[in-house]
Design a protein around this nucleic acid. Structure first.
Lengths: 246, 246
DNA sequence: AAAGTTCTGTGCGCTAGCGAACACACTACT
DNA sequence: AGTAGTGTGTTCGCTAGCGCACAGAACTTT
């Protein structure tokens, strides 16, 4: 699919890792393990003890809450701007949500004990992790509001944009059924909303392959939620703005 | 209503403050200022820089998101188990939500600089704040899911229970209009849901005065969300379980 | 080429919640 | 006692989204 995709990866492709001072990098980089993440793979289960934190490089991971009834909803999205497993350093060691791979790719994982050790040095890593956590909080809060007030059409746009920002290209592989799980709506609802976008020439959708054709139109059709999250994330994590800083 | 309610307050009535080691208490308690909080008072505005953190003793504060359209939704509730203003130590200094007093009462406030100074000593206070923040995250995530999947009836029960847990008695002063703002629904929707509860003898509702008569019934009628949040909060903040630990 | 699987489109009846409009409280003021 | 104000109950038509059921299209397997 890609020509360059199977070249070597580097931890520097993750915005948090690249922003660490060299001293910290030399301490923890040797312990990073590259892991391949398949679509749908569960990185950790709700309530389970976290053994690792994951720093995505080209994968996208969703924090998903699954209810007793089986109904689900996405709480937030994580790409190479962040990490999966904040509960580890926040002190809880587990979360009530599940982490699922939304777009296949790769991530570096680090043993929980290694991370907390560095965290407890109370240096730049702590500061970065906390700022990232706040951006996560913003995203979750916005998701709550969006779930309450906005239409499926708008939410789909928001979701596509959030995914797009974390993707190397404008192409996403994911059947409508899974998108429906993320948004917490019926598959048919997604079919309809995606159909509209298709008709407008904003996206191209074929059997689980979405290509975004008109990004600005997408932003226009989305609710304010995308913008709020984006702006706040950029404010909190300024280093993540340029493509690379290394 | 209470005989003891207008006696002097103490910072020890806040579960976070009471859990601090004595050494930290002697450092920061002299700087705590007792503040009276009126119903509807805005403690901080969305996007505004935070000057203080607030530790409620007998007040309840809601983190509320207000959209461009004016529609709103509650993100989480804070009582004497927590504090208002986590963004201060998380590094963001501001939030996209507003903090509104949901139940009048009192809180101790502490200058932001005082808090961050103590936070940066990287002791027990840091640990407590982070654990509390994670419980906030859990609550926000659950709110997002609840907004997506549960009926107004269920959500009202959840909301009442969360408020009840943070209240000295089983009585709450708040018109349906404001509850509607919190839940992000129409006032009429609340009227209907509250009417049902009234008919079932679960609550007594008269012109903004709610008295909970049958708490266990309320738990039964609520969605799973209340329980999830409660359990997780108790797990993360075990010191908050008994009445006092000092 | 045939058969099976996965993904998408469509149609239909149903309900929760919305928006608006209004009548009736109960409280407070003067 | 009267009047204004605030909180509550109710009604009615409307729409978004649900649950279900099925048809067809596009890939996969053999």
């Amino acid at each position: 699919m890609h020509d360059a995709i199977d070249t070597t990866f580097s931890p520097l492709q993750n915005h948090l890792l690249v922003a660490l001072p060299e001293e910290v990098q030399t301490r923890i980089f040797p312990f990073l393990e590259l892991e391949k993440l398949e679509l749908g793979q569960v990185i950790y289960e709700a309530g389970g003890k976290l053994a690792y934190v994951h720093f995505p490089v080209d994968a996208i991971v969703s924090l998903l809450y699954v209810m007793e009834s089986g109904a689900s909803a996405e709480i937030s999205v994580v790409g190479n701007e962040g990490l999966i497993g904040v509960a580890l350093f926040m002190g809880g060691e587990s979360t009530s949500s599940r982490a699922v791979v939304q777009s296949a790719g790769h991530a570096y994982r680090l043993k929980g004990s290694m991370l907390t050790e560095e965290f407890n040095r109370h240096g730049k890593l702590l500061e970065l992790m906390l700022r990232y956590t706040q951006s996560l909080i913003t995203q979750m809060a916005q998701t709550a509001v969006c779930n309450r007030h906005h239409s499926i059409d708008q939410q789909l746009c928001r979701w596509l944009l959030l995914s797009l920002d974390r993707l190397p290209d404008n192409h996403l592989t994911m059947p409508q059924e899974l998108i429906a799980n993320m948004l917490g709506v019926r598959r048919e609802g997604v079919t309809e909303a995606a159909g509209k976008l298709q008709k407008l020439g904003v996206i191209d959708y074929h059997r689980g392959h979405i290509t975004v054709l008109d990004r600005s139109k997408l932003e226009e059709l989305s609710c304010e939620c995308y913008d709020v999250v984006k702006t706040e994330t950029d404010r909190l994590l300024p280093y993540a703005l340029p493509k690379k800083s290394a």
